[in-house]
Design a binder for these strands. Structure first.
Lengths: 157, 157
DNA sequence: CTCATGCAGTTGACGCATCAACTCTAGGCT
DNA sequence: AGCCTAGAGTTGATGCGTCAACTGCATGAG
């Protein structure tokens, strides 16, 4: 069943262009975030997730779910961000050793100042460059792909 | 000039879906390469570049150019691959201390066995899931994006 | 009670990726 | 000659990301 035929040069080229474009865009956004606000894309994602939780503490599992990241990745990321002073882990010994995570004042400040700028960058570098047809195609492709891979017994969620 | 307006929830959602889909796909391909052939995507890229050079030794700068990677990244990658026995660095003291890099027999074997399988995975996970319109949109977007970012005084090349 | 099983989270090792600082060589200038 | 600069390549530090192995607690079976 596995189609083992090689790709045409033209297909290799499209594949190469696609992955290169993605990388360039991600890099661009990442660098801007770093330059303008001193935080990384990964940090921004976590800050946003906690920000959206509106003060409520989130557990590693919830963050993992909402970000679509592995728990281990979340844990490592929180460790780094705790070192930087962006988040605090509260060890509520109440009903077990469950740990909640919440933003510190510094974390709140960082996300507040970054969010508008980052959104603007995404708009300029992504949304503003898309024709409606391209946007539709990308939306469709993204949904297909997520559906296909995630439900195919491959990933946690 | 910077458009500082935030994104609509709908836009955030598209953005999130798109980045998530990319990550899932890349992960899927990476894992398959690792599982089936014991090499990583980065290793595959370097092996392919050297393979295409058809036996000729490449210098770090040439690899850097052809892969679109930073020289430092290439250097680190070659160090790891040298450790694994996939490439050999020849220190031609002839006209300076320029170092060429070439595939070892093991490296040749690895790329030969991986290439068809990897191409098949890309076909199944990417090309086979695209409608012609989607393929066109993705091609156009990729080219636009590469052009826009690379020529905008942002990246080496 | 005691052990197995399972779930939440952490940790260590390692590869990937970037940045800044460094070395080595060559070539040009005075 | 002596020096300066530029380019090629390397190195170390650090963050990101995955995997496998681990800890601690809870629950259910014997």
């Amino acid at each position: 069943m596995t189609e083992t035929r090689d790709l045409d040069p033209e297909e290799w080229e499209l594949w190469g262009a696609w992955t290169r474009a993605q990388r360039l865009l991600a890099q661009e956004l990442d660098r801007a975030l770093q330059r303008d606000f001193g935080i990384s894309k990964a940090e921004f994602s976590v800050l946003m997730a906690l920000w959206r939780a509106a003060g409520r503490e989130l557990r590693v599992g919830e963050l993992s779910e909402s970000l679509g990241w592995e728990k281990s990745r979340v844990s490592h990321q929180l460790t780094r961000m705790e070192r930087r002073g962006f988040v605090a882990r509260t060890e509520s010994g109440a009903y077990g050793r469950r740990t909640g995570t919440k933003l510190t004042a510094e974390g709140r400040g960082a996300v507040q100042s970054a969010i508008t700028g980052h959104a603007g960058n995404i708009r300029r570098h992504f949304f503003d460059t898309l024709t409606p047809q391209q946007a539709d195609a990308i939306r469709a492709w993204s949904e297909q792909t997520i559906e296909r891979i995630e439900s195919h017994g491959d990933v946690s969620a």
